[in-house]
Amino acid sequence: MSEPLFEFLCRMGDNTLVLGHRVSEWCGVAPVLEEDIALANTALDLIGQTTLWLNLAGEVEGKGRDADALAFRRDVWEFRNVLLVEQPNGDFGQTMMRQFLFDLWHKGMLTALQDSSHDQIAAIAEKSLKEVTYHLERTTDTVVGLGDGTDESHDRMQNALDRLYPFVGEMFVSDAIDTAMMAEGIAPDPADLRPAFDARLDEVLSDATLIRPTSDFAHKGGKSGQRHSEHLGHMLSQMQWLQRAYPDATW
C-alpha cells in the first residue's frame, strides 16, 4: 500500500510545489499592486500545502526524506505533477487561465478528499480547501473580467484557453495508482470529478464570452512522470540550485 500512497501524495504535493513556484515568478512585476499581493498570497498558500503533502509523503515512504528533500533533491522523472502546472507563465492571462483550470479541478479534488479514509489526508484537504475556495473565486472573477473586457483582453484570454485546454484532460485520467487509492477509500476516481468540472467550466466560459475548444485531446505524462515537458527541467535547475551546489549546507 505504501508505494501507491507515496505516489499519490507526491502528485498532490508536486502540483502545488510546481504551481506555487510558477506563481512566485511573478513577484514584483504584476499588472497592478493588488495583483502582486494576491499572486504572492496564492503562491504562499500553495507552498504551505506542498509542505504538508510532501512531509506526509516522506513519512509514508519511511526513508527519512522530508518535504525539502523531496522538493529539492529529485530529478524531473521523479516529479508527479500534471503537465498543466509546469507550463510557463506566459502573459498574465495565461497565468490566470492556468490557475483557474487548476483551481477548479483542485477544489473538486480537495472536497472529495475531505472524506478520505486517511485522517491526515482528510485534514490537509480540509485546510487546503479553505484557501483554494478563495483562489477559485478570484480566478473565476479574473477570467470573466478579462474575457468580457476589451477586445484585446478577450483575444488574449481565448488564446490562453486554447493554449492550455489540451492540458486539462490529464487531471481526470485514472491509472493504477488512482485505482489503488479508490480501493482503500483514500481518494476519489479522478474521472468522477469531470462532470462537475465541465458544468462549472461552461458557466464561467459563457460569462467570460469565451469558447471552449472542441477537441478533447489531452497531453499526458506528468502525473505518471513518464514524459514531462521541457519546461520542468529549467524550473528545477533554478529551484534546486542551492541545495544541489552545497549539499552539506543547512539553510
Binding site: V29, A30, P31, V32, E35, D91, F92, G93, T142, V144, G145, L146, D148, G149, T150, E152, S153, H154, R156
Partner: peptide, 13 residues
C-alpha cells in the same frame, strides 16, 4: 505589459 489587464478589468466593470 499590464496595461491590457488594467484596461480589460476596467472595461468589464
Amino acid at each position: 505589459d499590464g496595461r491590457w489587464v488594467r484596461e480589460g478589468l476596467l472595461a468589464h466593470a
